[in-house]
């Protein structure tokens, strides 16, 4: 209301000197528009330009450290799959990210359901504690974590890294899942119970299917996070045959004497493409996450 009155009042005083000269006004608007585009283009270029060398190097038969017009070839990508060590990096990354995502998602779906549907003592405190755990920086726990992993014989194993990565993703996923389940009316579940479903099969056949977009978004998010992680595998894995791409890239880059830039940039491209694609995909997905459409339809 206050805003409406305000608007009406200002409309009454439109004929101020400022607005009398229409042409000058339009010129000012044009200048502003041009300036807007100029600044946004500069920002976008700043964000994209560093990738030019990575992309061009990956298709350059004589790639170096410097940006240049490439001698076009796909040889670098072929070499990635031909070399004895590099395909292994890709497999390891897939195993670690896939495993971590599955574990985190599975546990968070059931945990999130409990947080959403049950009112138990200490639930509020627990929710805030989970939120607080999210801010614990991995750099500050990596040293004791390393010793713990040695003590429980999970150092330098896939299982160890998968469990740790899952543990890092669970706090956020619990919150996400709880939110998605909250938006599914309990009435739908109760209808299933009346039809003879048990509580568990009600969850499996009503709640989880209805939250599929949300669960999918959560899964992609966790996958991208684990896929890009550098510190955890750097500390918890020592055998090169278990390294994910992040560590492989770092090692290849740090080999001071002989860096194979073509192979390195091709690896980087293969490494970044899934996250870029998944991200585009997840952005659309997240918009669908509102289950209201499913209920109304």
């Amino acid at each position: 209301m206050a805003v409406d009155q305000h608007l009406a009042a200002s409309r009454g005083s439109v004929a101020t000197p400022r607005h009398r000269s229409g042409r000058r006004h339009r010129a000012a608007g044009l200048t502003r528009r041009a300036l807007t585009y100029l600044v946004i283009v500069v920002l976008a270029v700043f964000c994209v330009v560093p990738f030019a060398w990575v992309l061009l190097g990956s298709v350059d038969s004589k790639a170096g450290l410097y940006l240049r017009a490439p001698h076009l070839t796909l040889h670098n990508f072929l070499r990635f799959f031909d070399q004895p060590t590099t395909p292994r990096l890709l497999v390891n990354s897939l195993v670690l990210s896939g495993g971590g995502t599955v574990v985190a998602l599975f546990l968070s779906m059931f945990g999130g359901y409990a947080l959403s549907r049950y009112r138990f003592f200490g639930r509020r405190t627990l929710m805030f504690a989970i939120l607080l755990v999210r801010v614990v920086p991995p750099t500050a726990t990596i040293v004791p974590l390393y010793i713990i992993m040695i003590d429980i014989h999970l150092n330098n194993t896939y299982v160890g890294v998968i469990l740790v990565e899952a543990a890092y993703q669970i706090p956020l996923l619990l919150w996400l899942m709880k939110g998605f389940f909250d938006s599914i009316p309990v009435g739908l579940e109760e209808a299933a119970w009346i039809d003879g479903c048990s509580r568990v099969s009600g969850v499996l056949h009503v709640v989880f299917p209805l939250s599929r977009p949300g669960i999918g978004a959560g899964a992609l998010f966790a996958f991208v996070n684990i896929w890009g992680d550098f510190l955890t595998p750097l500390v918890l894995l020592q055998s090169p045959d278990r390294y994910p791409i992040s560590i492989g890239l770092f090692q290849a880059f740090s080999a001071f004497n002989q860096v194979d830039w073509g192979l390195l940039t091709a690896t980087a491209v293969l490494y970044m493409v899934p996250t870029v694609l998944l991200y585009l995909f997840a952005r659309r997905y997240l918009l669908q996450a509102t289950v209201t459409g499913a209920i109304k339809g």
């Binding site: 946004i40 976008a44 964000c47 560093p50 060398w53 990575v54 940006l67 890009g228 970044m272």
Partner: peptide, 26 residues
């Protein structure tokens, strides 16, 4: 398009982000 371009540095793995700047800062 502009939003997507600005999103790119955040979306890629941190190792790729660093690698991209290795040539920028060479």
């Amino acid at each position: 398009v502009f939003g997507g371009a600005i999103l790119l540095p955040m979306v890629v793995p941190e190792v790729v982000a660093s690698l991209a700047w290795a040539s920028m800062l060479a």
